[in-house]
Design a protein around this nucleic acid. Structure first.
Lengths: 204, 204, 204, 204
DNA sequence: TATGAATGAGAGTTCATTCAT
DNA sequence: TATGAATGAACTCTCATTCAT
């Protein structure tokens, strides 16, 4: 991450006026909140009301509802990718994959976010390479964990992503208290571990 | 089970005329198909068309769309519970839990059914004790597997259900080819297994 | 026109309930009036209000605004075709073409009808063979007039239709009092006439 | 015509700054092009984009869309009036009227201009005396043609204008290839001609 | 009881117009 | 003065639900 790169939020094509960018951010935040609470079928009107702007303003920034959903998703995926890169940069490499998965599940449990929208809005969203970048980051963590002997060699990225999506989805449903979350993830993590890592992990 | 007892689907309060019951079944079947294909946002008009009845008939039997969704869910859960009881009655008790989970995932992958509706229709559905009965059945399989030394003793029913919901959800997403399904479940099952069972399973 | 043929208005695919057909007619009449007054950009809401039905009813009968416009146009064209056939069936064949043109202009002047909608709604309308049938009827009148020596032999159907459309369009504009109408048509008709017919017509 | 007099398009109340007038011209040109292509329902945003100015600038010069349409119309009428005066000033007086009508039809067929806007925008436009001036020019040509014995004495200006509007309207519709245009106008012109002129014209 | 036409609130989207920058 | 973001009423269309037939 070079210091000269622009703020990651500024992914727009060209500079917006200050007030326009402020509104754009407010709309995105409002949309994230509204869709998190009520799902992707919540009305655009409600997003506008929550953002404190007129409905036309929402459609000026995001010409269709789909575009708004995509923008939210891209933002979330980018944020996750950055968290993931931070995890990779830090030490504790072996358990980094587990930490990241736990973090995502925790977030998903708080709001109907990434996976919730992915599931509800369906395949319609064109997320470009935002997803790809996240996959790559996860792939890095997986390799590192495998190199450290923590995760079995025969585990592939596809399964890890599938499990990630699954447990995040599951976490959306009622009744996932933090303890259940922890216990469920413990099972999945154990399934990923090598015998040796499992022995020491269980020992702890 | 006497032949005179009503079919388990007929959970209505009082007996219906023969044609009315026939319509009810057709509507349920049509609704299951339509919602499986297009998700819970498909229109009731389409359900009526597929069932070959008028829209008024649908609302006569199920006074709201929610009620229709609930009825589908109850039916599906009841069917699953019966499958599960059949599994429990048969032999192969130790691996019965895994077989059942695999079966559910397979079905979920084929259609947007149980879990899909649960996710889409949201928390609004009042499913009464249909869910409870299914939980109990799964609990039986779990106990049996634990008694046989296949599943770890510290695993609780809650985690199993959570994992079940999660992998079913995940299976709805694109790209879960049968092989990925198998590999993903293998990890989860490994996480559930005791060290001994794991050793022999891996040995196979 | 055989006596056994159904009422010409009943062009629907299958029989509608009495009340539904009544509403359909009311909507068509309202739409004709509203679009005649305000042009094709008048709102569907206004049509519904004028017809005394809810907006959903309009869209139940005509699933898009375009479909409603097309239905109006087809109705008008059919009505004109019938008038034209009546003219052809009656005597006075030589001047039948002129009588028909005059009739259309007169109607167009009263309301923004046929040609007005054709012009405003533009090329988007799929009018099927309604237009073709009208053209054929006009072609018959033209042939008859040419056989009678009233219209020049070198005049083709295309020009006649072009002139018809033009004068109807012109008649939509303000200031076409009946006298101006008559005088304008006199010029066009003279242009169509043979020298002989012209001499006698002028003589009258 | 002294070089210091303002261009005829600059009918504004008071002198504008050079850049302002330049913008005004660009907006008018853009509006003419856009409305010609897409009809009067095209959006003012599109006009601004084509003109390369901001939407606010358009509304600064023309406070409503109606005002913009009126300005376009006035410009077009003025241009036509000038063409017409040029025709009158040149020789070939007898056939000047026909030449002018043919020219207008040709233009109308190329773009949805004068008459198109008149028809679409409806009666709302206040065109002041721009129309009157055009009428007078046409009246001059008519007189001249009548003096030359080419057009019948009993033809009045009203009919000529009515026919002009009509054939221009007609020309907007699909299928008016140049040949059809010529043939249709030939009929109208013959209707206007005296017997003598007709004989010689037909002879050619 | 079944029918299916009617209802009407609400959705996404557009666009003439205003006004802070 | 020019900019262009914001406004919000209006539009087309959908669909769960009601009720006359």
């Amino acid at each position: 991450m070079t210091p000269s790169m622009p703020s990651p939020e500024a992914t727009g094509d060209r500079p917006l006026r200050a007030d326009a960018r402020r509104n754009r951010e407010r709309i995105l935040a409002a949309a994230e909140a509204v869709f998190a609470e009520k799902g992707a079928t919540a009305s655009t009107d409600e997003v506008a009301a929550r953002a404190g702007v007129a409905i036309g303003t929402v459609f000026k920034h995001f010409p269709t509802k789909q575009a708004l959903l995509q923008a939210i998703m891209k933002g979330l995926l980018a944020r996750l990718t950055r968290e993931l890169e931070a995890l990779a940069a830090d030490g504790a490499p072996a358990e980094g994959l587990f930490a990241f998965i736990a973090r995502m599940v925790e977030q998903a449990a708080q709001k109907r976010t990434v996976v919730g929208l992915l599931a509800e809005a369906g395949v319609g969203l064109q997320l470009g390479d935002s997803v790809q970048m996240l996959r790559e980051g996860i792939g890095n963590l997986l390799l590192r964990a495998q190199d450290a002997g923590v995760v079995r060699e025969d585990v592939r990225l596809d399964e890890v992503v599938a499990l990630l999506v699954g447990v995040c989805q599951g976490a959306l449903h009622a009744g996932w208290d933090p303890d259940l979350q922890r216990r469920t993830l413990a099972i999945v993590f154990d399934g990923l571990r090598t015998s040796e890592a499992r022995a020491s992990a269980t020992g702890c």
